[in-house]
Amino acid sequence: MDFKLKIWRQKNRDDRGRFVDYEVKNVSPDASFLEMLDILNVDLVKRGEEPVAFDHDCREGICGSCGLVVNGRSHGPGRGIATCELRMRGFKGGETIVAEPWRAKSFPILKDLIVDRTALDRIIAAGGYISSKTGAVPEANSIQVPKPAAEEAMDAASCIGCGACVAACPNSSAMLFVAAKVSHLALLPQGKVERKERVLKMIEQMDKEGFGNCSNNYACEAECPKKISVTHIARLNREFILAEIS
């Protein structure tokens, strides 16, 4: 398959950046979007041009490193996938594909399609953890967790921190990301001890980083590669209210 590409190029943080048109030929329909970019980069290197910089690591949808807005959708068209799981067979041959970085004030662009997502790390550092020493692996039934809570906590814990929720949200809100961690820990006995402090600190850090807030249109849930539900945002709000009034 052949494609026309419109890719955001930006030398560094201070550069204004612009779109550059490319063509890529003979791409297998089974190639992932990142593999297609690899093919383009091989061509660019052969021509002596600077390859397109993009983040990637595991290439199997579990690490959260990759993340591009492809044709106006975070991680491209499709549900529950990261950019590395986006296959070229979903596009029409000859189609022009637009690839841009996550765009948010809190995610400054470092180079081309790579953004600085350390704002998310700072939110986690503000309270997305438990303070007790975990020690060695404990006996499985020493702390009993009801099955529904365990399931729900596991769903929330599946967040890979890719930032697609921020990228998809018209307000660049990180509420789904924060909600996933708050919800995950609030549901489990180990996390309940610091739940009030945690939610207040994480929300405070989220605001400090310049993220927007929900207008509850739920684009985040639709684009999340792990399909994390906005019901976790409701739980985050609940946790926040309980922490404020008690």
Partner: peptide, 20 residues
Amino acid sequence: KNRASRPVAYEMYQLKDNTT
């Protein structure tokens, strides 16, 4: 605050695919 959170707009943004 929400307006200020994305100073550079997307070239292509298909929000309508996912929202009412």
